[in-house]
Design a protein around this nucleic acid. Structure first.
Lengths: 149, 149
DNA sequence: TATTGACTTAAAGTTTACTTTAACTTGTAT
DNA sequence: ATACAAGTTAAAGTAAACTTTAAGTCAATA
């Protein structure tokens, strides 16, 4: 099964112009042309899924390209690709841990406003501790710590 | 205890210029001045922690400002702030779930390359299923689904 | 045959979030 | 008194990731 850029765009719910931009940046080295038109294959969904993950963790396009270039070189780059993937996996894990802290912060805020709404004012909320969710977040945000030292 | 912009910058490991930029965008409505210099207080760390969370979930500065403006208006905006916080909490949760899927994708890749390195080639890896981690990810990336419909 | 819709390109424009620059002020140390 | 460090501003510059525009190609339908 093959797909036009418009079909891919529709399925992935991403503008065709974005896919063209990605292609221009070298993120679709395998996609062939028919009468100048891009022809996507089923296997490209697999790559798009990975690409999507990489975008999710804010991996810059240049880094994604780097990975693709390694992949194009075949088995000699297996270790390099492994290292890259491992580093990214760890980055995701750190990011999840970080977001988990944020979730707790917002959970506290949720309780704070629920309590304030019940009381009609937020003036008293800071003193109420009996029903307050526990916050165990550093005074100093974790992702500011040791940033580029 | 009060702090200069440089001290805050150092503690938070963020450039002073960024803090000035945030201030310019209205994100520090409470910070007073002494001889024209900004004076930060201990309570500002609390706000900086929340601000940091909001940045973490990529809440645009305009949205953060919106929240702050509501807060400045006092108790009449409690519900509006509650709604905003709740929506953001849900956004974080969705984001965490999303990253969780990505983590699995990278876990699979990790296994893939480990296996390929052992075999000396990636040619055979796709066929090995006995030791492969399970991937239960949609063909279509979840965050592309129903995007702005 | 003419029009339409979906594609193509290069190049310019947009957005967000800073970052840098340049010129200036102020408090402290020599 | 003078120099230095650390602060101030407005305004211009930067970077990344798109998005839009304008002009053109091509296959299929009216």
């Amino acid at each position: 099964m093959s797909y036009s850029i418009g079909e891919i765009a529709k399925i992935m719910n991403v503008p065709a112009s974005t896919l063209r931009y990605y292609d221009k940046m070298g993120l679709f080295p395998e996609v062939r042309r028919e009468n100048g038109r891009r022809v996507f294959e089923d296997k490209d969904f697999k790559w798009l899924r990975v690409l999507n993950c990489m975008k999710n963790i804010k991996m810059p396009i240049t880094k994604i390209k780097e990975y693709l270039d390694l992949a194009q070189q075949g088995d000699t780059t297996l270790r390099a690709r492994y290292d890259l993937i491992l580093a990214q996996k760890q980055a995701i894990e750190a990011e999840i841990a970080n977001l988990e802290k944020c979730r707790k912060e917002f959970e506290y805020k949720e309780w704070y406003y629920e309590t304030a709404i019940k009381a009609g004012t937020e003036a008293v909320v800071e003193n109420i501790t009996s029903t307050a969710p526990t916050l165990e977040i550093d005074q100093i945000p974790s992702n500011y710590k040791n940033k580029e030292d």
